[in-house]
Design a protein around this nucleic acid. Structure first.
Lengths: 216, 216
DNA sequence: TTATTGAGTAAGTAATTACTTACTTTTTAT
DNA sequence: ATAAAAAGTAAGTAATTACTTACTCAATAA
């Protein structure tokens, strides 16, 4: 996997796929999510898609590039659009950070559940493959952190958030939200996440488990 | 991997290993942690350990059993002893839940860093292999949750914790602590975790990021 | 019409996979 | 000292791996 693979895919246009190419994509997503990239052979993908193995390599060249072709589009959608939709609307309005956080989580969970298999692949391979880690983690921080920083600082000024440094807040939130997605989607393999679960998560992120009187 | 594999290993006594067997164990740990179980061949392990491949299979029978033989002992140490050491001392003493949480985290982090490679393997394979998930996750909850429940309820009575249900607290704590270990040990591959990082984590778990005045 | 291009594939390829067999060497027990 | 058991290995095995080659067929462009 070359160093500029990620950028190459990031800038690629979406092309119309033939029926057989769509079957390849769907088979690969299914199998990668279920058994993991390393435990899925191209022969298996071809069999499930009912195409010849060579068709896969005609299109994608290598198994690695097939993986990236599945992951990158989701990635492009999940993180950059993360802010822009929810963020703009809620930020300048009358709403609270708590409201923002709730809508933000709901919104991202909905998107992740809609493409659950791809998110399972992303989380699994992000942990498993060193090269992916090195390309995607800086990207996530750059894209996500820069926008969330603005939101956090806005609500800090409104006095709704503590005055601990924004960077530390982001780190804690990433840790919890990352843990939330990993445990719900991958470990527990949930089909849906109900309102109460989201409510509990929001409450924890805002207030923790300590009683309010014990704040120091 | 059979269903009672886990119990079989759990009840096994620790046996003295020969020099070559130790080399096998160390080579396997190194490679599994670095490249993942699926991307490591038994031939590679044998080469790094400077033994014949057959020696591995003489001892462990299958590659799967080798993996379990590495993982299970750590597992036995990490989760059950989790409570007993830190828990008993701190619980009945004068200390606060905050103090308990801090010492608890420090203690577990120290143990995890000391066996960093094995914890990387555990986290990676827990996410990757369905069979492991099904055996280990219930075990974790049973062992860890039962003891932590006691601690939480003790400090609840002392008024140091909110009155949200203990189960929900545990879930949130697991999510955050799990995310913390996964991101620090696997994603960021840290060699050490400094006091301030722990302090920030404790603060987040207790108070979140909301200002204390905005508690509802 | 015919030349070109892109989609698709059957049948390979060499390398690698987890694991075995049949054997030798070393350690331990008596 | 010697028999038995355990530790270790060289040289396999069949199956699977990612990937290639040389081809056919259908659609489009000239």
């Amino acid at each position: 996997m070359s160093n500029n693979m990620f950028n190459e895919f990031l800038s690629s246009e979406s092309v119309k796929l033939t029926v057989k190419q769509q079957r390849i994509v769907q088979a690969a997503i299914r199998l990668f999510a279920e058994k993991g990239y390393s435990n899925t052979s191209t022969a298996e993908i071809a069999k499930l898609a009912e195409v010849s193995e060579a068709s896969i390599f005609k299109q994608y060249g290598t198994k690695d590039k097939l993986l990236l072709a599945l992951i990158i589009p989701q990635f492009k959608e999940f993180f950059p659009s993360m802010a822009d939709e929810v963020l703009g609307q809620l930020c300048r309005s009358q709403s609270t950070f708590e409201g923002f956080l709730r809508e933000f989580l709901k919104n991202r969970i909905e998107l992740a559940l809609k493409n659950k298999e791809i998110f399972q692949i992303i989380i699994k391979e992000l942990i498993y493959k060193e090269e992916l880690k090195k390309e995607l983690i800086p990207y996530i921080f750059e894209v996500a952190a820069s926008r969330l920083t603005q939101v956090i600082e806005l609500f800090k000024e409104r006095g709704e958030l503590t005055d601990i440094p924004t960077g530390k807040m982001l780190k804690s939130l990433f840790t919890f939200v990352g843990g939330f997605f990993a445990s719900q989607l991958v470990l527990l393999n949930k089909e849906s996440i109900d309102e109460q679960e989201i409510e509990d998560a929001v409450r924890f992120m805002l207030h923790g488990i300590g009683s309010s009187s014990s704040n120091n």
